[in-house]
Nucleic acid binder design. Structure first.
Lengths: 200, 200
DNA sequence: CTTTATCCAACAACGTGTTGTATACTGGTT
DNA sequence: AACCAGTATACAACACGTTGTTGGATAAAG
């Protein structure tokens, strides 16, 4: 009885249980035995699919991180057509799609490596698009990179907080806020907010 | 021969060598023996001062993270007097002071816990200051928190990148860039940059 | 000569990654 | 149908290293 185990299923089962555990405790305290016990496999089986607990985490991260192609597609519009609205839209779609995982990976027990990889990839794909098109000088090219960094950091930070707070704000509002901040600057947005409240 | 060991010195020596190792490899691969061997102490001595490798890291983090009082002082001006220039100045002083450490702690092999602690603390101290003063409504109060999050994330991201690139830009330029972005929004700043380059 | 800080040795407990053998199911061949 | 090769996992045992702890020795300071 019990049908033949399928490798892909086994691997996925292991990942699923690993993830469940990872959500509740830092990775350095997770043992292989803990995972395989939960998943109902022999400890040795884990090593068939992963070299390491950290390797398992990487497998999950890889499944989230969009492939180069998909990423490129997603980013093409960003600074080219200057349609920032759509750029933000796509970013949020991405975040919505993998929200639960991203929340953990970017949270207190998350993986800094993953954050770096995301940023690195965005930079790699974003920079050539505009800097080549507009022939920025050296200094401005650097500044541009820092602006990209700021934007990613800011977006990731905001959405992570938003998720960790159980989406306490309608998506539209958050969208608008981020959009406004990128358009007008946080200072300006803050000022308007205060004035709006003064007049009520 | 050899003068009497002083506890504080020993502790610091251990921390120093731990840090040197931590800069070069992820913490999960650092053993107690590795640290004590490098520092020239017995392995047991480590456990006199720390419970754990992670505990040692925490000790370093605590020495960096400003105390509540100092932090409060540093932040008081931020959204109160609305003197953003000075606020940014203070932030950068803090970053300059602990630059090498922050670069590692916020980098790929860094500690997500530490990032959370910083953000949490800034939020805790920043929110009451303005939201009480200006009686924001519930929704705006939340938005305000997200704006704070965005600003911290953005600043930390930028400065970490800046450090990891060996400060490839004069501090003044970076300062100006961040200031501009917070005032006018990254989009606006980017636009101006492009136009400036068109006319040359 | 007492206190203090470190050394040293040894300990059990546990996690790691690996290996060899056994079992059981699958799909394809005859 | 019967058989066989391939595959996925089980199981057990291994050597090895790390952990955190302990009790006693050593050496310097006051």
């Amino acid at each position: 009885m019990g049908r033949r185990p399928v490798p892909e299923e086994t691997k996925q089962t292991l990942l699923d249980h690993f993830w469940k555990i990872y959500c509740e405790k830092p990775i350095e305290k997770i043992t292989v035995r803990e995972i395989t016990d939960a998943a109902g496999f022999n400890r040795g089986t884990f090593y068939v699919y992963f070299t390491d607990v950290y390797n398992a985490l990487q497998a999950i991260e890889d499944s989230i991180l969009p492939g180069e192609e998909q990423f490129e597609e997603m980013i093409k519009d960003h600074h080219k057509g200057l349609d920032r609205h759509q750029s933000l839209e796509e970013f949020m779609d991405f975040y919505e799609q993998h929200g639960e995982k991203l929340q953990v990976l970017l949270g207190p027990n998350g993986d800094p490596t993953f954050v770096s990889r995301i940023k690195e990839r965005v930079r790699r794909l974003l920079i050539p698009h505009s800097s080549e098109l507009h022939k920025l000088n050296e200094k401005d090219r650097m500044k541009f990179e820092y602006m990209v960094e700021a934007e990613i950091s800011s977006r990731l930070g905001i959405f992570t907080l938003w998720f960790s707070r159980g989406k306490d704000l309608p998506l539209e509002d958050l969208h608008q806020l981020v959009y406004d901040m990128e358009q007008k600057g946080s200072h300006q947005v803050g000022q308007e907010m205060l004035h709006r409240n003064d007049f009520r």
